[in-house]
C-alpha cells in the first residue's frame, strides 16, 4: 500500500517551519512524523500527516509550495534487528532508498519505517512477497485510537 507524504519547499530561515505547523494546527491535522532536509539556503520539510489531502489543500491555500509524494510506510518489529531485516531485503533487490525516517507505534512492539525509493512498484511487490505489512493514508490515520486503547 502507498502512503502519502507532504513535502514543502521552504527557504532556510526562521519562521518557515512555524508557518507550516500553524496551518496544520489550525486545521487540526495531526503530524505522525516530520523530517527536514536542507541544502544551504533552502530545504524540504517532509511531513507524514493523518489527512495528507486536507493538509495539502490547507498548506497550498496558505501560499506554501507543497506536493504530495508517494512513500511506503513499512511496519517493522520494534526490537533489535527489526530494521535490519527490511533493509537487507531491499539491498538484496538493488532498491535504492532516497530518504527514510521512522517512528515507534507501540513501544517494544511495532515501529513504522517510511521510505522513499527509486522503484516504488518493485518495492511494494518485494515487501508483499516477504510478508511485510505496509500502511496507507487511512491506516496511518487510524493508528492512534488503537494506540490509546492500550491504556
Amino acid at each position: 500500500m502507498i502512503a502519502y507524504q507532504l513535502s514543502i519547499f521552504a527557504e532556510n530561515k526562521p519562521g518557515r517551519l512555524a508557518k507550516v505547523t500553524s496551518v496544520l494546527a489550525r486545521e487540526k491535522i495531526n503530524i505522525r512524523a516530520i523530517t527536514i532536509a536542507s541544502s544551504d539556503a533552502f530545504g524540504v520539510i517532509n511531513i507524514l500527516a493523518d489527512d495528507p489531502e486536507a493538509a495539502r489543500k490547507a498548506l497550498g491555500d496558505a501560499g506554501l509550495t507543497v506536493s504530495l509524494k508517494p512513500v511506503i510506510a513499512v511496519v517493522i518489529p520494534d526490537k533489535p534487528g527489526g530494521l535490519d531485516k527490511l533493509i537487507q531485503l531491499l539491498a538484496g533487490q538493488d532498491i535504492n532508498i532516497e530518504n527514510a525516517y521512522g517512528f515507534v507505534l507501540e513501544s517494544w512492539e511495532k515501529a513504522v519505517f517510511v521510505i522513499e525509493v527509486d522503484q516504488i512498484d518493485k518495492t511494494q511487490h518485494v515487501l508483499k512477497a516477504s510478508k511485510f505489512e505496509t500502511l496507507d493514508a487511512s491506516a496511518l490515520a487510524s493508528i492512534e485510537p488503537f494506540h490509546y486503547m492500550k491504556y
Binding site: Q5, S7, S38, V44, T65, L68, K69
Partner: peptide, 17 residues
Amino acid sequence: VQKEFFSGDLKQLENLR
C-alpha cells in the same frame, strides 16, 4: 521556483539550482 514544478524532492531542486 515555480509552484507546479516542485515534486517534493530536494535533489530536483539542487539540479535546478
